[in-house]
């Protein structure tokens, strides 16, 4: 009787769109978001409206980038098809509201995970898929070697993020005054920087590298060594749907684990066919069905992620590597190689 009541309670909660938080683990745990995605047959993924490296459309209109690869990975895990994603380009202004209102299922939009957004906006930070920090790019002809020499300089940047706040804080901490000029769109900001309206351009390190690549002569610009803020960019979900959060979190972990264990898009089939004895490898490739099913998805979800997008290193190389934006891995390398990317153990 009580279990029936619990079931009714869970169903009522799911109908109300509140998720099934607070129910004991042994009961059938439901995720309102997961159910909605499955029913829709499509993942609504909130991404940047267009920024090289993270999310952009190529000449044929196909979405590409690190954040886009994460959307594809989630769709592959949940729906079995990486193409079943509806990309919703969101601006900095509306991104959190769009997520709160349920228009998108997940927000992967080079957004910094912060205290205020966690507590005040009631969002759930899931994982850091890109460790960035605010950096400066200046014309080489100014002969500036350090951000500490920027006293009195004017820096162009985009509004709607925490860039202007970081610069004011950095200036105050170092006893200098850096003027900020805030633009709505990158095109005008780049044009202003190019024309010398400001002495430099500032954004997260990944975006600065992207900005430099769009300058008329990228070699005229130098990126200063200082990183003046911590910008852990990552994935946000709505609070109150832990099950959905688990799926998102472990999608990220699978991408890291695959790189750690040397599994790539190309060799995944081969390794799977060779029937590996390593229990971690078995779990990674979906050979241990009972284990894989604990997430509430079918046994093959992790294997499908790797087949769809490759491992984290492959994605990084494709969009930030030497052939793309030429941004060194740095803090985004695996912990075993001196970086910060650390996968929780698959057990």
């Amino acid at each position: 009787m009580t279990s029936l009541r619990k079931l009714a309670y869970a169903a009522a909660l799911a109908v109300c769109g509140l998720g099934a938080a607070g129910l004991p683990a042994e009961a059938q745990v439901k995720s309102a978001t997961l159910d909605a995605v499955k029913k829709r047959g499509e993942l609504n993924c909130g991404v940047d409206t267009g920024i090289p490296g993270f999310a952009f459309q190529d000449s044929t209109g196909k979405w590409k980038g690190l954040d886009v690869a994460y959307c594809r990975a989630i769709a592959a895990a949940v729906l079995g098809d990486a193409e079943k994603v509806k990309y919703v380009g969101v601006t900095t202004k509306v991104r959190f509201t769009v997520l709160q209102s349920g228009e998108i299922d997940v927000l992967i939009r080079d957004s910094t995970l912060t205290f205020t957004r966690d507590t005040q906006l009631n969002l759930s930070p899931i994982a850091v898929n890109f460790y960035a920090g605010q950096a400066f790019m200046v014309k080489k002809s100014l002969k500036v070697a350090s951000a500490k020499e920027l006293n009195g300089a004017t820096i162009c940047m985009l509004t709607g993020a925490t860039l202007e706040l970081n610069i004011a804080d950095y200036g105050a901490a170092n006893g200098i005054k850096i003027n900020s000029l805030l633009f709505d769109k990158p095109e005008e900001a780049f044009a202003a920087a190019e024309a010398g309206r400001c002495d430099g351009y500032s954004d997260d390190s990944g975006s600065v590298a992207a900005a430099r690549s769009t300058m008329k002569t990228p070699d005229d610009w130098t990126i200063l060594p200082e990183i003046i803020s911590k910008e852990p960019l990552g994935i946000y979900a709505r609070e109150g749907d832990e099950k959905w959060g688990d799926i998102l979190k472990w999608t990220h972990m699978i991408l890291l684990t695959a790189e750690e264990m040397g599994v790539t898009k190309a060799n995944a089939d081969q390794i799977k066919a060779s029937k590996p004895a390593d229990p971690f490898m078995q779990r990674l490739l979906g050979l241990d069905e009972d284990f894989s099913k604990q997430l509430g998805l079918d046994g093959d979800w992790s294997y499908r992620i790797i087949k769809a997008v490759g491992n984290y290193g492959e994605i990084y190389d494709e969009y930030f590597g030497p052939k793309a934006l030429g941004l060194p891995r740095g803090t985004n390398n695996l912990w075993t190689k001196g970086g910060l990317q650390y996968a929780l153990p698959l057990r």
Partner: peptide, 9 residues
């Protein structure tokens, strides 16, 4: 509707 909106949410 830009900076303040974003910083305060």
């Amino acid at each position: 509707a830009g900076t303040v909106l974003n910083q305060t949410g």
